[in-house]
């Protein structure tokens, strides 16, 4: 049985699954990266994702265009981000707690809307598999990377986009400055709070897509609490990735690949208790992070609200 795990077909299968599983984590964690880079810890990602998932599903369920559904999910996600901004930036609330409030609000409201507007678990036709021409014909690589739905590609595309915005644009410079030393940024004429609002809204929008990638991409259903705490893992992955897009990609892939691996281990009947197998991605994420050397410090102003003229 164990040797079955090391066949090429299994290995390809693990990679194929892992690449797909990483999608919602990527969207959500990249969004959270923006927020944390500017100094705001948003623990409410899961709630924003649920709102996005419901919105996208609702639009698609009522016959709306799938891209319209994604746009709606982004819009609602942005609104959730805006709400977090009001509470955590303007009102300077303790971020560890306001995020939990946002999570509960999103969890409750999405379920409530589902109950009142839809009422039973239904399915929709979500984004179909889109085998990219030429690329998907590549041996092995084609199946692993280029045989997914369009939101999966978009998630990976967001990695260089995020890296570019954060590292190569003036806006990115402002974000990093605000997260590192808000007083200095302020004295240079950067509006600390405005930047933080924008990053929270971007984070909300991406969390909205993360939800949509589940409800109209990978699962094509909506169910109460369907993310099941996925958003919290996404927040953890931002720490894993040391607030860099590439690092987040590494974390999301590691977590998802190990998750795919443990599913394969179970499916192939390798005699490990299922609970132990399920633990693997969580354990390994901690272990890998422990063993790697990191020099990057967290944004100095993370979790610290900013008030002018202190």
């Amino acid at each position: 049985m164990l040797n079955e795990l090391f066949t090429l077909a299994t290995l390809i299968g693990i990679l194929h699954s892992g690449v797909r599983l990483a999608t919602p984590y990527l969207f959500a964690a990249l969004g959270e990266t923006f927020a944390q880079r500017s100094g705001v810890l948003n623990l409410g990602v899961d709630g924003m994702m649920l709102m996005g998932a419901f919105t996208a599903f609702y639009v698609a369920f009522n016959g709306g265009n799938l891209w319209l559904a994604v746009a709606a999910a982004i819009g609602v996600g942005c609104l959730m981000g805006l709400l977090m901004g009001v509470v955590s930036v303007t009102m300077q609330a303790e971020q560890g707690i306001s995020g939990i409030g946002l999570y509960l609000f999103g969890l409750g409201l999405s379920s409530l809307l589902f109950k009142t507007l839809i009422g039973s678990v239904e399915s929709v036709s979500g984004f179909p598999k889109l085998a990219l021409p030429l690329l998907s014909d590549l041996p092995i690589i084609g199946y692993i990377f280029f045989d997914h739905n369009v939101l999966v590609y978009l998630a990976y595309l967001m990695v260089p986009v995020t890296a570019f915005v954060l590292n190569r644009t003036t806006f990115g410079l402002s974000i990093r400055a605000v997260g590192h030393n808000p007083e200095a940024a302020d004295s240079l004429g950067v509006s600390v709070n405005r930047v933080r609002y924008v990053t929270l809204i971007i984070g909300g929008g991406l969390a909205g897509v993360a939800g949509a990638s589940l409800s109209i991409g990978l699962l094509n259903v909506f169910q109460e609490n369907m993310t099941n705490g996925l958003g919290f893992i996404a927040v953890a992955l931002v720490y894993f990735g040391s607030w860099r897009a590439v690092g987040v990609l590494g974390g999301a892939l590691l977590f998802s690949l190990v998750n795919a691996l443990q599913l394969w281990v179970q499916v192939l009947g390798i005699p490990i208790p299922s609970d132990i197998a399920v633990m693997l991605p969580y354990v390994l994420t901690i272990v890998v992070l422990t063993l790697t050397v990191r020099q990057i410090q967290q944004p100095a102003a993370l979790t610290k609200p900013y008030e002018r003229g202190e």
Partner: peptide, 21 residues
């Protein structure tokens, strides 16, 4: 639906932390 209760809890948490300012 019980989800109303969850949403309400979320609102209370948000309002109370915000009022702390």
């Amino acid at each position: 639906p019980s989800s109303l209760v969850v949403a309400l809890q979320g609102l209370i948490v948000l309002f109370v932390v915000a009022s702390d300012l």
